[in-house]
Design a protein around this nucleic acid. Structure first.
Lengths: 160, 160
DNA sequence: TGTGAAAGTGTCAGAGA
DNA sequence: TCTCTGACACTTTCACA
């Protein structure tokens, strides 16, 4: 992982469909060299995947909520996580420090669906109670933090 | 937006680098037809973008926290959101219903950086106090919910 | 890493259902 | 309107140096 890898990663975070040739021009390598570097970054798990980001409301998922999951005394966190993963409306799942054991992000079509989803969550073995925070608007989400890709001395250089 | 569009979207959410030819084979269209459809989906804002997903710890961002932002009585939410957007470590920003006005996801390298980041957050005009929940592990994140792309009668058909 | 070459793909125009 | 075909340039992806 050198500066070139970090530049390639930064570019792919901004545009996941950039061609290897484009990336090569941007970082000053041939397309085949970029191809090999990206392959290694994928193989070593640095690049986990590529995803199209879709406007949730455009695909009928206009309601977002953040739900704290409070476990029972005897709950097994790993089993809980597996159960949470089985609900398709649970988009993200974080194991957290504090009273709650998990915080999940739920995405559904309507508040009725949210109510049903909360019912499913509460019925999971090991869930004592939930605390739901409804998202009114998403100002931004999953924004690429270009901070880490720059040299700590010179700062980020995403546009380079 | 018909069933074909939804299939294309579902495929691109799973693999954002799928070729038009691939997508065409998957949905039974020519590459050029897929090309045109994707172009329209991008132009109309259904597809917002394509991003490589990177293992945060691999790029030196091993610490994640969810921070509730409690506003002062006179705080302006829009100004607050703008200020939050200026902090590069704030990856996501949700305006929520409840006591807090925003919940943000912060991604930094170390707990020291987290401390500094919380200092920056608290110094923002309109922030009365913050409540921080440290993420111990991310079980999954930004998982494509394939539920919405299927026909409501037949259910999801992501693998089709 | 780069070069070179073959296979595959992107991306258009134009024509047809 | 939506789709397909055909054509060319570009890209991917390999072997070899």
């Amino acid at each position: 992982m050198d500066a070139l890898d970090r530049q390639i990663i930064a570019a792919l975070r901004v545009n996941g469909r950039a061609t290897y040739a484009d990336l090569g021009r941007k970082v000053g390598l041939s397309a085949s060299a970029v191809h090999e570097r990206v392959g290694k970054l994928e193989a070593t798990g640095v690049i986990v995947g590529y995803h199209a980001v879709v406007d949730p409301s455009a695909v009928g998922l206009g309601v977002t909520a953040l739900v704290s999951i409070h476990p029972t005394d005897t709950a097994d966190d790993d089993e809980l996580a597996v159960s949470l993963a089985e609900l398709v409306e649970v988009e993200s799942c974080y194991r957290v420090a504090g009273d709650e054991s998990f915080i999940v992000k739920v995405r559904v079509a309507t508040v009725d669906d949210l109510e049903r989803s909360l019912g499913r969550l509460r019925r999971i073995q090991g869930v004592a109670r939930t605390r739901t925070t409804v998202v009114l608007s998403t100002r931004f989400e999953g924004r690429p933090n270009t901070d880490e890709v720059g040299d700590p001395r010179t700062g980020p250089e995403a546009g380079a």
